[in-house]
Computed example of a mutant assay.
Amino acid sequence: MKIGELSAATGTPVETIRFYEREGLLPVPRRSSGNYRIYGDDHVARLAFIRHCRSLDMALDEVRVLLRFKDAPQSDCGEVNRVLDEHIGHVAHRIRELKALEKQLKGLRAQCHASQEAGACGILEGLSQAATQTLEAVPPRPAAGHHIGRTHGRH
């Protein structure tokens, strides 16, 4: 099958397929006499595996490790367990961050109970105050021509 057919069969955009090829996640397909990429069922299965991992929010490096073990079925899967355990930790961390974000947004929402003029909107006022506090927390940038850090000499 050609790349468009692989795209349709897996619901994966053509550019994503090409990206996965460049990243080494998908094996290079053979070429037709007209120089078209020709994909097989193994590409469909591998792409489905990659997409499922990505739907679980796994990073490409995590997927790469999993594929390495999938390609070597006699290998010990201890590293696979480690990759998944680390990913679970990242997901738990993101959930905590998202809960904090939800709390912050609900606090903003509580500042405006009824429709009114935008100039009196508690949400807009709260966003403005938070933006001002963020700016105040940013350290000033050095003036043009002043460099902080490494010098231009040998290291």
Rank of each mutant, 00 (worst) to 15 (best):
N35F: 04
D71Y: 07
L60D: 03
F69H: 11
G40K: 08
S33F: 02
V65L: 02
R46H: 11
G40D: 13
R31K: 12
L67V: 06
R68F: 03
C77D: 09
R54A: 15
A72K: 09
L56F: 07
V65K: 00
L60H: 03
D61K: 04
A45N: 10
P27K: 05
R54E: 11
V44S: 02
K70R: 15
R51K: 15
D76L: 01
R68S: 10
A45Y: 04
N35S: 12
P73H: 03
R64D: 14
Y36P: 07
G34E: 02
D57M: 13
R64P: 06
A72R: 11
G24D: 11
L60P: 01
M58A: 10
S32M: 00
Y39R: 14
R46W: 14
E62L: 08
F49S: 09
V44H: 03
M58V: 10
P27I: 04
F49D: 11
S75A: 08
L25C: 13
L26D: 10
Q74L: 04
E62G: 15
M58P: 03
D76Y: 00
F49H: 04
D76M: 00
L67H: 05
L66H: 04
K70D: 06
E62P: 08
L47Q: 10
R37D: 13
P29W: 07
A48Q: 14
H43I: 09
R68P: 00
D57K: 11
R30D: 12
D41F: 02
Q74K: 04
A72T: 07
E62T: 10
D76P: 00
S32T: 14
C77A: 05
L25A: 11
M58R: 05
L47V: 05
R64A: 14
L26P: 09
V65M: 02
P29I: 12
S33M: 03
I50S: 06
L67D: 13
L25G: 12
L56N: 10
R31P: 01
Q74F: 01
S55W: 08
D41T: 07
C53H: 10
D61M: 02
L47G: 12
D57S: 14
K70M: 11
G34I: 06
H52A: 15
V65Q: 01
G24H: 10
P73C: 09
G34F: 01
D61L: 05
R46I: 11
D71A: 15
R51G: 08
L26C: 12
L47W: 03
L66T: 07
S32V: 01
Y36H: 13
L60R: 01
L60C: 06
G24W: 11
G40Y: 05
G40P: 03
D42A: 15
